[in-house]
Write a protein that binds this DNA or RNA. Structure first.
Lengths: 229, 229
DNA sequence: TAGATTGTTAATCGATTAACAATC
DNA sequence: TAGATTGTTAATCGATTAACAATC
């Protein structure tokens, strides 16, 4: 579902859409059929006005005076985020993190299908990782000629990250989730999302210090705590 | 190092500080002793003006006409983010993801020390995870009376996430890195950072669709690709 | 109908970018 | 000194929040 308004959609709005989707699934389970933006605010912690604004980029999904039909809204958001169809994903890196990702049940639940796992370590190539066989990263392009995955996950050490990105892009991947602490160079049209544990912990570490009274001019974090990233 | 200006420090600025730190480590390795904000822009992809602005919250670190002394700047940023001292961290959840985190070398490199691992599954309690013994989550408060960790990582299934958060907070933890796809309720003063693989992949999935020409009014992503999160 | 709640416009807020005087 | 580059102020940009007319 494309934006209907022609306005730019903030990436933060897309992230929140994924959060709404998750909470709507909960509501479906609880057999709640209708919800207002105000009561969704109490669930998610995201302001009602922001919820309505986020949806407005894509159309009208509620009824004034009534609210939103839970399952209809959930399906609409799934369609917007393409969570209503299978997305094929390649994984580069069969280390600890790669293993955790292959075993993560959340991916299947969101219709994300890991179709191949690659590594460059000959000690690992040919072995199994759960139900997947680890393939030689040199065969990535060839393999993806068949698989046609559009998303790649990089879970390799920093030094290997750019090479992994280049291989993925050469194979037609246009969206990369990067777990390596590296700044990837990619051509226009390729989106990279970085996940950095250390960066997250650095922010938390700074926050701790600001609580310790070391910091007289503590920044105002009053509303950060309950906030969904 | 507290903010010296009394201005609020944007969280995004703290995240970028962690990125600068990583690149400065690289420069030290390459025996580069001085760098300007402009040449750092080419390394990190973050605009020079933003780099200078981010630093300005904390003081003056460069010399006009010259640039920044690499190791001095790196040490200053480490001090700001408290990466110059050991931070003790508790981990709740000894599943696949927990195992990957315990084995992740990046934590030690940033002086983050995992001091205890907890689980509520009696099949796991008492077993070893790498060099750590898995402890009963019921003992968390007691254990932390000794350990005094200020940071907690939640790597449990969604249903157990709020309970894990409550246990961590009761034990004095004031900063939480949450990998569970749940919105945690925490009291004021406790900071939560959420890491959501599925959310990241949802954004990527949307981006893919916007490339497919399904979307005539594609939002402007022209400068997103090379950007550091 | 009266009350509730949406979708959207306008106002506010905050972060990024640009420009430049100060300074090495 | 002349050239380079900082730190900071002001301008721009974009996202969030508030307000409210439309509508069920």
């Amino acid at each position: 579902m494309p934006p209907t308004t022609g306005q730019r959609v903030p990436i933060a709005a897309l992230e929140r859409l994924a959060t709404y989707h998750r909470h709507l699934l909960d509501l479906e389970q609880e057999r709640i059929t209708t919800i207002s933006s105000a009561s969704l605010e109490t669930h998610t912690g995201i302001p009602a006005a922001q919820f309505r604004k986020d949806l407005s980029y894509f159309g009208e999904f509620g009824k004034p005076g009534v609210g939103y039909e839970v399952s209809h809204l959930r399906e609409s958001i799934a369609r917007i985020l393409r969570m209503d169809r299978e997305q094929r994903v390649l994984l580069v890196g069969a280390g600890n993190l790669g293993a955790a990702l292959v075993g993560y049940p959340g991916l299947k639940e969101q219709r994300l299908r890991l179709v191949a796992v690659f590594d460059n370590n000959y000690a690992k190539i040919g072995r199994r990782l759960w139900d997947m066989q680890i393939l030689d990263v040199a065969t990535l392009t060839e393999v993806n000629r068949e698989m046609r995955a559009g998303i790649g996950i990089i879970a390799v050490p920093r030094q290997a990250a750019q090479g992994a990105a280049d291989a993925l892009i050469a194979a037609g991947v246009r969206a990369i989730l990067n777990f390596a602490p590296a700044t990837l160079r990619v051509p226009p049209g390729v989106m990279v999302r970085n996940v950095s544990f250390v960066q997250e912990l650095a922010v938390l570490s700074y926050h701790l210090a600001s609580l310790d009274g070391e910091d007289v001019t503590t920044p105002d974090y009053s509303n950060v705590e309950n906030y969904e990233v």
